[in-house]
Amino acid sequence: MKSLASDNYAGAIPEVIEAIQTENRQHAPAYGNDATTKRLEEQFKALFQRPLEMHLTFNGTGANLMGLSCMVHPYSAVLCAETAHIYVDESTAPETLLGCRLIPLNINKAGKLTPTVIEHAIKRQGDLHHPQIHVLSITQPTEYGTVYTLDELKAIKAITQKHKLFLHIDGSRIFTAATSLGCNLKALIDASEADVLSLGGTKAGMLYGEAVLIFNETIHNSPFFHKRSMQLASKNRFIAAQFLALLHHDTWKKYSSTTIKRAKQLAACLSEYPIISITKPVEANAVFAILPQRWIKPLQAILPFYVWDESNDEVRFMCSFDTTEAEINLFDKKLAELSKASIESNL
């Protein structure tokens, strides 16, 4: 059964499977000392047109925490959205591994951090009684599937530079963000001047694997943090090969375009029913909506999805690279059946 619960539920794109099979035909040095890993790093440097250090990790939590660990001290604080994955969905791993404080900030109606909120949170710098804010972490796209525009990223950059903060981007779905904005990854980094990017591969169609890209040349000793975070793969080349498949001829763009198209299709279907409220702008591959509670289980039987907020029956639909038009149509058919039954029951 397919699912609208998460793009983590999907398998891998064919190009990734082929790349792994090709890589599997040979032996190569371990721990990233192989030609495939080196080729990927050079490709990232060419893509972003700037120096960088690359470290590959198994998963998103590992990527976020490995990247953040390069920028903090035991007395540091990291600002993030109240909905941020590092604050809500990574258990106590951030506090345990980083050994510092996360400070959640209020988001606006679109699920984004605003310059005003960020600026207000930066205080008591230099006060030894207060955790020292050293990093701002943003998620692109946000946890609500909305996308920071290039101008919004530039405004955030101005604040981090003014207060001499590091900027971390949790980009678990950043390929989708770039497609939504009609730009490449370089444009996102140029606008934000991010110091560290957690670049997502799993949700983009890889079997597993993420990349930590360090753009700030003042950040030292990242290989040691990579090892310390327990994210250094002995067969590192199998992650690298998957990323190379995504980057080859912008393969990522073909699949992220499909995820966005399906999300827009689903949103259009939901909009046909006045009893349903779409709660957030549909900009990437997520749709958030409030459904009649009695509709949730019958719809989950067609295509499973998560209830995001049980207090008001807000749900999250997440489209994947292999979500089809026919599956959305099937879901819409069930919506029509439920709507008809509701109308008849009120007659």
Rank of each mutant, 00 (worst) to 15 (best):
N346E: 14
L247K: 03
E95W: 07
A191E: 12
L244F: 03
K297W: 13
G11Y: 02
A267K: 04
F58L: 11
N64R: 10
L153A: 00
E90I: 07
N8Q: 10
L102P: 11
K340Y: 04
E23T: 11
F58E: 05
S69L: 06
C269W: 00
L136D: 09
P281N: 05
A191R: 09
A155Q: 04
D190M: 09
H85C: 15
S257G: 13
L79F: 07
I302Y: 03
R228P: 00
L303S: 14
A93M: 08
P104L: 03
H226V: 06
E337T: 09
F321P: 01
H55L: 05
K162N: 10
Q293E: 12
E23G: 10
A158I: 09
I260K: 13
K264R: 15
H163N: 06
G111W: 08
L188G: 01
S91E: 07
A5R: 11
L153H: 02
S320P: 01
C269V: 02
Y306V: 14
V196I: 11
T57A: 00
T37E: 02
A178L: 01
G200P: 10
S3C: 02
Q49E: 14
E15Q: 15
I275P: 06
R294P: 10
T218N: 15
R25D: 00
G201P: 09
S345T: 05
S339I: 01
V117N: 14
M206D: 13
I20H: 06
M206Q: 12
A121V: 08
S137M: 08
G126M: 03
Y208N: 12
M71Y: 07
N216H: 08
P51T: 07
Q21Y: 13
K38W: 11
A110N: 13
A12I: 11
K157A: 15
T83Y: 13
E119C: 05
V88D: 02
L188S: 00
I275G: 02
H248M: 04
K253Y: 07
A289K: 03
E143H: 02
I107H: 10
L197V: 12
A341V: 01
L270K: 04
A63Q: 12
A12H: 08
T179F: 00
T22N: 14
V287S: 02
G32P: 02
N59D: 14
H163E: 00
L97S: 01
T36D: 07
